[in-house]
Simulated assay, not measured.
Amino acid sequence: MKSIFTGILVGLLSLSAFAQKNYLTFEAKIENRNGDKLYILGPKKFKKEINLNKSGVFKDTLKVTEGMYRLNDGVENTSLFLKNGMDLKLTLNAKEFDESIVYSGKGAKENNFLAQTALYEEHYNYPELFAADETAFEKMTLNKKQTDLKRLADAKLEPAFAAMYTKEIEGATEDLQRYYKEEQKVKKLNNAPSPTFEYENHKGGKTKLEDLRGKYVYIDVWATWCGPCIAEIPHMKRVEEQFHGKNIEFVGISVDTKKDYEKWKKFVTTKDLKGIQLFADNDWNSDFVKAYGITGIPRFILIDPKGNIVNANADRPSSPSLTALLSELLK
């Protein structure tokens, strides 16, 4: 009788252990949170919404396919590596999102590596890389790839993650090479007359580039769904305030699709976006967007008072080099 009971108990424990391996637990404690929902997004349109509970914690169980995911709080996002069996805990301060991410629990080592990699990437000198000639670019890109692979090897992470992230590094290297070639094409636009536009103005009517002749024009091509675009908004407002009254117009051109037109209108109002806010007539297929070869956003463009392109891929508002340039041009 005892042996039968023992056998049943062992079987139940085995089933319990098996069940635990078929899902993961995720918990997040966030200071200065941007909202009461978190979203985990992944392959094959995977989406899990996690609501804040009564204890002020985001907590839920998920069943996933092992791989790379994104955690989004509605404003910021970060990479995750998830697999069933993990018991992952996250703490962060939303005001210092990337800098404050710390994971604990099962799966923490790989995810802390991803968080630290995001900070490493933020401080990498990409402007220098893309300003290099072709020979120097290839050398710098190879060096970056080797450095990234060494960081991964030195971290001594689990083999499945290491193999997966090795492919991420190789893919990122290919993306850099492709982006560099596109950049070289864009640079050829500089000093030439700018393609024009005539788009609906949020304040009413339409605005065309020729209406702004006689002033510098700094254009922000963006969309309401674009996280990096939204992250630039506070910096854009600061730049606009710094150069208020100077000989320059700040123009936002949304490439949201027509179905998101009302979302764009509301977004501009609720976020109190300044400058001239325009809605492109055919999102990514708008003539102005295609003429500049824009395939990723945000994209910034600087045009001179005569309508010629100063920089077809200008620095972002968050870059100190932009304010330095504008200070020189508008003095």
Rank of each mutant, 00 (worst) to 15 (best):
K2E: 11
K2W: 06
G11K: 11
S16T: 10
S16C: 07
L24T: 11
L24E: 09
E27W: 00
E31A: 15
D36G: 14
L38E: 09
L38Y: 05
I40Y: 06
L41H: 00
P43Y: 00
P43M: 07
K44R: 10
N53E: 08
K54T: 12
K54E: 15
V57Y: 02
K59W: 02
R70Y: 08
G74C: 13
E76G: 04
N77I: 01
L80S: 06
L82G: 05
L82E: 06
D87G: 05
L90Y: 03
A94W: 04
A94S: 15
K95C: 03
E96K: 15
D98T: 09
S100N: 08
V102N: 14
V102A: 14
Y103V: 00
K106T: 15
G107K: 11
E110G: 11
N111V: 04
N112R: 11
L119W: 01
E121F: 08
H123C: 00
Y124P: 02
N125V: 01
L129F: 14
A131N: 15
A131L: 09
F137D: 13
F137G: 13
M140F: 01
M140R: 14
M140S: 13
N143K: 15
K144T: 00
L149N: 04
K156I: 01
P159K: 14
F161L: 04
T166H: 10
G171F: 01
E174M: 07
D175H: 03
Y180R: 05
K188W: 01
N190P: 07
N191G: 10
S194I: 04
P195S: 13
N201H: 08
H202G: 01
H202K: 12
K208G: 14
L209K: 09
E210T: 14
D211V: 03
L212A: 05
L212M: 07
L212P: 02
R213F: 00
V217N: 08
D220I: 01
V221P: 05
A223N: 05
A231D: 08
P234A: 14
H235G: 07
H235L: 03
E241L: 04
K246W: 03
G252K: 08
K259W: 05
T270I: 07
T270F: 00
K271R: 15
D272H: 15
Q277C: 13
F279E: 07
F279D: 07
D283L: 01
W284T: 04
S286R: 04
F288N: 09
Y292W: 07
G296F: 04
G296V: 03
I297T: 02
I301L: 13
I301T: 06
I301D: 09
V310R: 07
V310E: 11
A314V: 00
S318K: 04
P320Y: 07
L326A: 10
K331R: 12
